[in-house]
Design a protein around this nucleic acid. Structure first.
Lengths: 202, 202
DNA sequence: CGACTTATGGATCGATTATTCCAGATGATG
DNA sequence: CATCATCTGGAATAATCGATCCATAAGTCG
């Protein structure tokens, strides 16, 4: 598997990192090839297509990079060894803190970067929509488990409570993008604890 | 104020309505002049600019149209004669119902249509950002009033609870756009009542 | 009817979009 | 050193973007 031919003149990894930030900030449609190439270290058009294939293919890689880095704040939601309540609220807390951090674009790339647009980018939008649906399902199953385990009341409206918690998670992105500061978002999540407690079995 | 000259060949009002739906569905950037003109009744380029001035100016009119029609679901939030709790939850209930209605684009135009994009449309984005900030402030003042009136506990984290409620409102848009059905969103809002009750003064 | 005002169809504008092409550069391999 | 594979700078592609121009149409008004 020898690597022959002229070596790449730029850091592919750093280029993806730069692309991720641009997509995160301006969205898929709002990030032009021109801006992309400049933000990836000033690479040429030929280099871009040789290395990444297309804008959509790069977006896919940038999304993966996000999920493997900043997007890991939802890891507790994926950890089935944690109690349901902790899975949800730890995810919310970490999301609030990360999304309001101004050392990178605010809000969540999955929520913001490919939400609307023309009909031609349906496939791109489907990528993030799938992630959001996955989170939604995981939240719902947490609530279901808590009811089954007797932690939450059997009278709990599972779909409703799950949707509310999912909505809170999604709403963080828009608030963060609107400049709502970190401590306010964190306080909001702490306030949300009341939702769980109000539905506890007694 | 006599009206001279050749009369307009299309219904300006219906054209704005069509534009509003397109901006609502595809966002500001995602709606091209071409699609716009077709969706406004097949008017010509010259007619478009004679009647509306520019794409941005039309968006402004479409936004106003939205605020005066479907956007009126937030009217309770503006009605200072209502008790704070009712102002907030009536707004949430109406928003959930309206935004999940599939007879028009799902979600909220103010929340979705001008959220991201290139640097050139800052002015357009500011229009909806201003509306969202206004709603945020109104929600916060409702919570403040409820605390002052002794309805909510003096220990309530006002900023936190307000942000949480605002986040729920904003999150509805993304959930609705993701296809979450009306009854689920409505159930979510009903569940949110617990937030208010948990903070009641005792 | 003629003067005036506004709207329209349709071509056209320059700028920007994502993408491709080509000639030359730069390495590894035999 | 010659061959081969890959990458690179930069020009060029067709399509689309928002916007403008112009000749003509269709009204009102004197």
């Amino acid at each position: 598997m020898a690597r022959t031919g002229r070596p790449r003149g730029f850091d592919r990894d750093a280029a993806i990192e730069g692309a991720m930030r641009l997509f995160w900030h301006h969205g898929y449609d709002g990030t032009s090839l021109d801006r992309l190439r400049r933000g990836m270290g000033g690479i040429s058009s030929a280099s871009f297509y040789a290395a990444f294939g297309s804008k959509a293919a790069l977006y896919r890689e940038a999304l993966d990079r996000y999920l493997a880095s900043h997007g890991r704040v939802v890891a507790p939601l994926h950890d089935e060894s944690l109690p349901p309540r902790e899975r949800i609220f730890e995810t919310l807390k970490r999301s609030a803190r990360m999304q309001a951090d101004t050392t990178h674009p605010t809000g969540c790339l999955v929520t913001l970067s490919a939400l609307l647009g023309g009909d031609e980018d349906d496939a791109v939008r489907a990528l993030t929509a799938k992630e959001r649906a996955s989170n939604r399902n995981r939240i719902r199953r947490c609530v279901e488990q808590a009811v089954t385990a007797g932690e939450l009341s059997g009278l709990t409206n599972v779909e409703g409570l799950a949707s509310l918690l999912d909505g809170i998670l999604l709403g963080l992105s828009i608030q963060a993008r609107d400049g709502v500061p970190s401590q306010v978002l964190t306080a909001a999540i702490e306030t949300a604890d009341a939702l769980w407690n109000a539905n506890r079995a007694r």
